[in-house]
Design a protein around this nucleic acid. Structure first.
Length: 500
RNA sequence: UCCCCGAUAGCUCAACGGUAGAGCGGCCGGCUGUUAACCGGUAGGUUGUAGGUUCGAAUCCUACUCGGGGAGCCA
């Protein structure tokens, strides 16, 4: 009987066959330990040399990393092992050999791992992350589906430049220039006038020349849009939606988060209501004492941590080269030293940047956009996500609804994830007045002819409406507590990386 | 577009301007409870590319390529 590793607990004492790949193997001459993975988990399979195992024992001893195997054996409960089980092997079939699998259980560099991404996500950490991604995407779809939204797929080839044309990938479309979509928003606006509540969900493309831990050139975005809605409705939807996603991951993927070392308690604090600040209030915070205090406290903590690491480094380095220390301990120390070196590098960059960020915050222009460091400051002030609303019109897109009380501001919202993870949602109420919208198109120097169909929406029964976009990878990075977004997508596309 | 850092064996890294090394992985051998197993042996290199300085360059200088991080911009 074939069986998946995550079903082993139902089969204790039974003889089952696992179909999988060798994750790691060890042998001591007369006993072989095979760690097998099958996509649902890991299981250690043990074969001791005996007349019963004679037929396959030598073969088992020579199995290499990632060889494909069918392993038959008796399921034993064993609390000490991964998953709490062990398989006592009674039969083995090699389905596919594996020669010189490049990714070993030892540390590798990022460049190497992502050049081998097609093999990299067989490893445990990546497997846990991509399972969380799956759950996040599944919850996104089911949240909207159970709340009366209709899925509207929007085109990837888009005719005109929406906003900043420099950030669009241009494609030759039978001799005409078209652009890879960087949002489906204009189209879902049309669709919500037909269906009331809609969402689109797919890949979007940005040609931003950004080489940072928060950027991909191809990423997935979900964009709900609702008719008869004002800014508060958009915010309430976003808040409820984020809680649903977090709740789902906490319910079904706690073990994945724990493997990743995520502080689950901080995710449990993500409950309604989130913080709400206007851009003006955010500006006051940034320019005030609170931001400076936060940053100088941060600076002190990080400087102290650097000293601590340096001390530890010296100790571990001495121990790792000392006489009579076992090789396994040296290996462990080398690994720890590599991690410390990385943390130290990060900390040094941050410590270098903090004074600059303090300056930026102090001099923050209340009429300008929030920069990356400003977002980080705001998002560190609380355990909960923070909505920042009513940005200056000048730094936002033409389609955002002009505020009724202050024409220099728009009814928009960004959601900043806590712990410094930054912006994961951008949204707004849309401009529903034909004349104001047309005026804004002119103001931005855009060609009204390109937006004729979009302006039509304001001519035939225009209503207040709005929506937002949520970046899937940034959300997954936040939930998993990852510092780099590239691990959250199976095949990342970044500046200078499009293989495999 | 700008700033900082890096490139040495398949991988992760060492090497004062003076003969290029270790660990892992591979291969061979040993070991009946291993957890990144361990022990012994073995193969493996045009030091990213092109110039320059020098008696002598992995090491110093210049340019380029590629990668990492950050600014701007953004989800």
């Amino acid at each position: 009987m074939t069986c998946k590793i995550n079903e082993l607990h139902q089969n204790i004492g039974q003889t089952v066959t696992l179909q999988g790949w060798i994750y790691n193997s060890r042998d001591s001459g007369k006993i072989v330990f095979l760690v097998v993975r099958d996509g649902t988990g890991l299981c250690q399979c043990v074969a001791a040399k005996s007349p019963a195992t004679e037929a396959f024992f030598e073969q088992a001893r020579q199995l290499t990393q990632e060889a494909a195997v069918r392993v038959t054996g008796v399921v034993k409960a064993n609390e000490k092992q991964i998953g709490g089980h062990e398989l006592e092997v009674t039969g083995l079939e090699v389905v596919g050999e594996s020669v010189d699998f490049p990714i070993t259980p030892k540390p590798h560099g990022i460049d190497f791992l992502f050049k081998n991404r097609h093999l990299h996500f067989r490893s445990r950490r990546q497997w846990h992350i991509l399972r969380v991604r799956h759950a996040v995407i599944d919850e996104i779809r089911s949240y909207f589906n159970r709340n009366g939204f209709t899925l509207i797929d929007t085109p990837i080839f888009a005719p005109a430049a929406g906003e900043g044309a420099q950030t669009l990938f241009q494609v030759d479309y039978f001799g005409e220039p078209v652009y890879m979509a960087q949002t489906g928003q204009l189209y879902v606006e049309a669709a919500c006038m037909a269906f009331g509540k809609v969402y689109c969900f797919g890949p979007t493309f940005r040609a931003e020349k950004s080489k940072t831990r928060r950027h991909l050139t191809e990423f997935w975005m979900v964009e709900p849009e609702i008719a008869y809605a004002e800014l508060d409705d958009v915010i309430n939807l976003a808040e409820d939606f984020i809680c649903a996603i977090i709740g789902r991951v906490l319910r079904d993927h706690r073990a994945d988060l724990e493997f990743l070392g995520r502080d689950v308690a901080s995710l449990e604090k993500i409950t309604k209501p989130f913080n709400r600040l206007t851009h003006r209030e955010a500006a006051d915070i940034l320019r005030g004492e609170r931001a400076q205090e936060l940053l100088s406290k941060d600076l002190k903590a990080k400087t102290a941590r650097i000293e601590e690491i340096k001390k530890l480094q010296a100790e571990k380095e001495a121990r790792s080269t000392a006489q009579g220390v076992k090789q396994w301990e040296k290996d462990k120390l080398v690994g720890e030293l590599a991690e410390m070196k990385e943390e130290l590098g990060d900390l040094e960059v941050e410590v270098k940047n903090i004074p600059h960020h303090m300056e930026l915050a102090k001099k923050f222009d209340p009429g300008g956009d929030l920069g990356g460091s400003d977002e980080t400051i705001i998002s560190r002030l609380s355990d909960k996500p923070t909505f920042v609303t009513h940005y200056p019109k000048a730094c936002k897109a033409f389609y955002m609804k002009q505020n009724a009380d202050d024409a220099s501001r728009v009814n928009n919202v960004d959601l900043l994830a806590p712990e410094g993870f930054g912006e994961i949602i951008g949204g707004s109420q849309r401009e529903d007045s034909h004349d104001v919208l047309l005026h804004r198109i002119h103001e931005e120097g855009l060609n009204p002819a390109d937006y004729a169909w979009y302006l039509d929406l304001r001519k035939y029964g225009t209503v207040p409406h709005g929506g937002f976009g949520l970046g899937v990878e940034r959300t997954v990075a936040w939930i998993c507590g990852l510092k780099h977004i590239r691990e959250t997508i199976p095949f990342p596309r970044m500046m200078g990386r499009f293989y495999p």
